[in-house]
Design a protein around this nucleic acid. Structure first.
Lengths: 67, 67
DNA sequence: CTGTGACTAAGAGTCCGTT
DNA sequence: GAACGGACTCTTAGTCACA
């Protein structure tokens, strides 16, 4: 499976575990609302700095999002 | 420490452990030689698909390069 | 063998909407 | 709330010549 697809699944799962909307998650990670939507659909290929912010907002390690 | 700097250190360390030159590593990861040089100096902010190729070439998990 | 500046095409990331 | 589109700016991908 593609790394963007793995990220997509992990993001959606972890966000929903926290009970956050995409909008709230976007705010916490300081990323645009529509970009979170794109990422959860595997439609984007983000840079590692963005994924780092996502991981920090979710309080997980980068590996948990990408491995 | 910044995620691009963590990547830089991990890349150089793991590459040298394998006894590879940047050139040989670049060939194995299907990435340009000078791009590997940039990455090992933390001068780039790569996308996750690029890091995925690096991890595959080094036979490690993505988390080992970024965490 | 590696570092660096420069370059273009492609895509990252944002912001406005509508469904 | 979420998916999706268009349009926009800025950075990355990928390469080269040269130090």
């Amino acid at each position: 499976m593609d790394v963007t697809q793995r990220l997509a699944r992990n993001l959606r799962r972890l966000r929903q575990q926290k009970g956050w909307s995409q909008e709230e998650f976007a705010f916490r990670a300081d990323i645009h609302r529509t970009y979170v939507s794109d990422l959860e659909r595997g439609a984007r290929n983000p840079t590692i700095t963005v994924v780092d912010r996502l991981a920090t907002a979710l309080d997980v390690k980068l590996g948990e999002l990408l491995d």
